[in-house]
């Protein structure tokens, strides 16, 4: 295929990956109080894993992909809440292992990364426009 805009494949893969990461963060935040999931256990934090995909010929830039979304196996946070239906005999409830601050930092990093990639799209587009105007006054 004619590749008119240089590096657009890398950038689109990154935008896609960052969007998935933001989805996962929002899933973590919205499930931060879920004490009983479908498996009867408190919700466990999910995290994305980034991986580079190199062009076999090393012709273009590297793209990025998310091969798996892994589960964070840190233990749940125990909170004393005797009246809670999911409390154990001692009155402790296992809350999801989610630290809201951690999630917010991840969200900001992801959004900055997204913006950086949008800057690349802009610049790649202006490069392509300049190339197309070769020979014009």
């Amino acid at each position: 295929m004619l590749n008119l805009i240089p590096g657009i494949e890398s950038t689109s893969s990154a935008l896609n990956a960052e969007r998935i990461r933001m989805d996962v963060v929002s899933q973590n935040i919205s499930n931060a109080q879920v004490t009983k999931g479908p498996d009867g256990q408190p919700y466990q934090r999910q995290q994305v894993v980034f991986q580079t995909v190199l062009d076999s010929q090393l012709q273009g830039g590297a793209t990025v992909q998310i091969p798996t979304i892994s589960t964070d196996h840190r233990p749940p946070i125990l909170v004393y809440r005797p009246g809670h239906p999911d409390a154990d005999p001692r009155g402790m409830v296992a809350m999801p292992n989610i630290n809201i601050h951690e999630e917010m930092v991840d969200l900001i990093a992801s959004s900055r990364s997204f913006e950086a990639n949008l800057a690349v799209v802009k610049s790649a587009r202006s490069l392509a426009m300049q190339t197309l105007s070769i020979g014009k006054r």
């Binding site: 950038t11 580079t52 590297a62 950086a116």
Partner: peptide, 24 residues
């Protein structure tokens, strides 16, 4: 060369958070 460097930078920024990635 500049068109290719644009691709390299796009790849680098795409992988800004990939562990172990080395810039091209």
């Amino acid at each position: 060369a500049t068109a290719l460097r644009q691709e390299a930078i796009a790849g680098n920024l795409a992988n800004v958070e990939t562990p172990g990635y080395r810039r091209m």
